[in-house]
């Protein structure tokens, strides 16, 4: 895609009308194109006014929000220019970490490029109303709400986290990340389910969304761990890089 084509996506981006792939490319472009940054901001102002009839949410929403925030620490302001560090350098540093370290579950991520921040809410994992007729659950919700759902949090030294929710009865796993830096240009985050014999099975690609939540593809009934690697666009059949994170499901 040429730069010219990318500029033309500013309006669709401002309306969230790009697919995941285009969004990733456009966001990479945004980092380098002040014109598009400016345009997206101003078109976002216009879009915000398109808003529709205001509708007061029920008081239960307000209660849930105001009690929910008590367990959430607001992120600190960004104090320096973001994400200027070259990714190759980070990749190199990651590779220098020993395998033993990784397996031992010590911090896998020091790199700002791959910050997995606290997946906000345990509150999100539970239906917060006693509505007797809940809406049909999405594939994600089915896992989140499963009676045997278990959570695995990964906390990193900088306070960031990724969360995997697993329901063995459904054979499903959901991953939630927040504020995840975009994958390097031309690359994608790929998810893996690790079989009991250690083999890594492709489980889908992360959308290029800092606040991702998705159900992993494949059967997680016997999965031992969930891994994330950086792969060329389109993903790989087998991991070609060392995982940037492994969440152990065994515990």
């Amino acid at each position: 895609m040429t730069d010219h084509d990318l500029h033309a996506l500013s309006g669709a981006y401002a309306l969230d009308a790009l697919d995941d792939d285009e969004r990733a490319r456009f966001e990479a472009h945004l980092a380098d194109c002040a014109g598009c940054r400016e345009e997206v901001a101003s078109l976002g102002e216009a879009a915000a006014l398109l808003g529709t009839e205001p509708v007061e949410p029920p008081a239960a929403v307000r209660d849930a929000v105001l009690s929910g925030i008590r367990s959430i620490r607001p992120l600190p302001p960004i104090t320096s220019e973001p994400a200027a560090e070259p990714v190759d350098d980070l990749a190199a540093r990651r590779t220098r970490r020993s395998l033993v370290q990784r397996i031992a579950g010590t911090p896998l991520i020091a790199a700002a490029a791959v910050v997995l921040l606290l997946a906000v809410g345990t509150a999100w994992l539970r239906p917060w109303t006693e509505d007797p007729t809940p809406p049909p659950a999405t594939a994600v919700e089915q896992v989140l709400r499963a009676a045997d759902a278990t959570r695995v949090d990964k906390e990193f030294p900088d306070g960031s986290r990724a969360t995997v929710v697993l329901s063995r009865s459904l054979g499903g796993a959901v991953i939630q990340t927040e504020d995840m830096a975009p994958a390097p240009q031309g690359k994608v985050y790929e998810l893996w389910l690790q079989r009991p014999d250690g083999a890594m099975v492709p489980a889908g690609l992360m959308p290029d969304d800092p606040d991702a939540e998705l159900r992993l593809e494949g059967d997680a009934t016997h999965a031992k761990a969930v891994g994330i690697t950086i792969e060329p666009d389109g993903g790989s059949e087998l991991p070609t890089t060392t995982p940037i994170a492994v969440l152990d499901l065994a515990t």
Binding site: V61, A64, V65, G68, I69, I72, R73, P74, L75, P76, P77, I78, L118, V120, G121, A123, W124, W128, E178, D211
Partner: peptide, 13 residues
């Protein structure tokens, strides 16, 4: 609800 929890979390940003 998710939106406002996110707004709280991101408020410093």
């Amino acid at each position: 609800q998710e939106v406002f929890l996110e707004v709280w979390r991101q408020s410093g940003r």
